[in-house]
Design a protein around this nucleic acid. Structure first.
Length: 199
DNA sequence: TAGGCGATGACCT
DNA sequence: GGTCATCGCCTAC
């Protein structure tokens, strides 16, 4: 196994900002992501290796989709390498193509910035479901990632949203000034003090 | 097999 | 700011 340093993971997360993700008829430009380090990260689903999290232990460049609170789907990009289970949660994006379809899926017509704000909404706008779990993002079929490119504007760093463990690890990254970025909300179960895990 | 919990989001006050 | 809907997954027994 090749150890993945936190700086590499941060670089992977930064690399996804500003990049496009093509879903089922909808394309978004990623504006907010969160990094999860794998078995060493108590906030990651990969902290316990189970059939659900197994996809994160596989090859990088694949999509990990899970259902949260019985209502929403959340999408991650496995950043690997194989066996390390590092992944980046896609939290928000700007819909740049397929606006009508995204509005139809989300039922939002008055504020395009809300179409893909929040991981559940992002997955919904893209039409991502559990059926997309394990999809190869470098393949020809949707979902797939667009070509790498710079974020285009300064990247802001902050603590991760909603996690009960390691809530203070500043592995949430978003593009400065983007209206599509979701609001910060701390998990009520998270301890008040600084987290034990620091990059 | 049953019970508890969660990387959420929308609505209400 | 607070509450609640809702169900797949994990763990304990």
């Amino acid at each position: 196994m090749v150890p993945l340093s936190s700086t590499d993971l941060v670089a992977q997360a930064h690399g996804l900002l500003g990049r496009t993700l093509h879903g089922h008829g909808v394309t978004v430009r990623l504006t907010e992501v969160e990094a999860y380090a794998g078995p060493d990260d108590p906030a990651s689903h990969a902290a316990t290796r189970t059939p659900r999290s197994e996809i994160m232990y596989g090859a990088p460049g694949r999509l990990y989709v899970y259902r949260s609170y019985g209502l929403h789907h959340c999408a991650n990009v496995v950043t690997g390498p194989s066996g390390h289970a590092a992944a980046v949660l896609l939290r928000a994006g700007e819909v740049v193509d397929g606006l009508d379809l995204a509005r139809q899926r989300r039922g939002v017509v008055d504020d395009d910035a809300r179409l893909a704000r929040g991981p559940g909404n992002l997955a919904s706008a893209l039409g991502l479901t559990l059926a997309d779990n394990g999809a190869d993002l470098d393949g020809d079929d949707a979902p797939r990632l667009g070509p790498p490119g710079g974020p285009g504007r300064p990247v802001v760093t902050g603590p991760r949203v909603g996690v009960a463990s390691a809530a203070d690890v500043p592995w949430r990254f978003w593009l400065e000034g983007e209206t599509t970025v979701s609001a910060y909300r701390r998990n009520p179960r998270a301890p008040g003090g600084p987290g034990a895990l620091r990059p």
